[in-house]
Amino acid sequence: MDLGPYTSFIATSYLAAALVVVLLIGWIAIDYRIQKARLRALEESGISRRSGRAATDLQ
């Protein structure tokens, strides 16, 4: 595939898009872990939800 004289611009666009999407996915995945860890810590310290279900009960 020959992209002509502007290969760098095209490659940069695709790489930037990939990078931003990866950052978004990474941020959301890490955030999910952090929140779950906090819920687990709260659970272990004996705090229960008003509904009585476990804090880490995600279902």
């Binding site: 929140q35 819920l39 709260l42 804090a55």
Partner: peptide, 8 residues
């Protein structure tokens, strides 16, 4: 989950 953490 963040809000659940907050209220807990």
């Amino acid at each position: 989950l963040r809000r659940r953490v907050r209220s807990l």
